[in-house]
């Protein structure tokens, strides 16, 4: 089992969610986050005063999937989140040791 963490532009969330729903992904967790990568922050001016915005708002999606689905799901997320411009985000894939469903106590892939 793997955990996919995707950090994407907020306005692409609907597209990504719809694409994942079409694949039959059963659930996900969403967090509003801020950050920067190679994009860095940018300067803004308000009423003549300049300030630097380091952390840019993004959303982070987390989902746990079986090993054989990983490639397909990552590709779907990447396509749906793509604008081609800097700041489109990143996708991380991490190993997951165990999953337990709280209600039933099921474990492993049955609990996904």
């Amino acid at each position: 089992m793997k955990k996919i963490e995707a950090i994407i532009k907020p306005f692409k969330l609907d597209d990504v969610k719809d694409a994942l729903n079409q694949l039959g992904v059963k659930g996900m967790t969403l967090t509003e986050v801020k950050g920067y990568g190679r994009q860095k922050g940018h300067k803004e001016i308000y009423r003549g005063a300049e300030y630097v915005v380091d952390f840019i708002p993004k959303v982070k999606l987390e989902l746990i999937v079986s090993n054989d689905q990983v490639g397909e799901i990552v590709e779907v997320i990447r396509k749906a989140a793509l604008t081609g411009k800097i700041g489109d985000g990143k996708i991380f894939v991490l190993p997951v040791e165990e999953v337990i469903r709280v209600r039933t106590g099921e474990t492993g892939e049955d609990a996904i």
Binding site: K9, P10, F11, L13, E44, Y46, P57
Partner: peptide, 16 residues
């Protein structure tokens, strides 16, 4: 734009 509609017009159009 779709991006500004999600971000909101306050920031997207007025930077506030």
């Amino acid at each position: 734009s779709h991006e500004n509609e999600v971000l909101g017009l306050d920031q997207g159009a007025h930077s506030e």
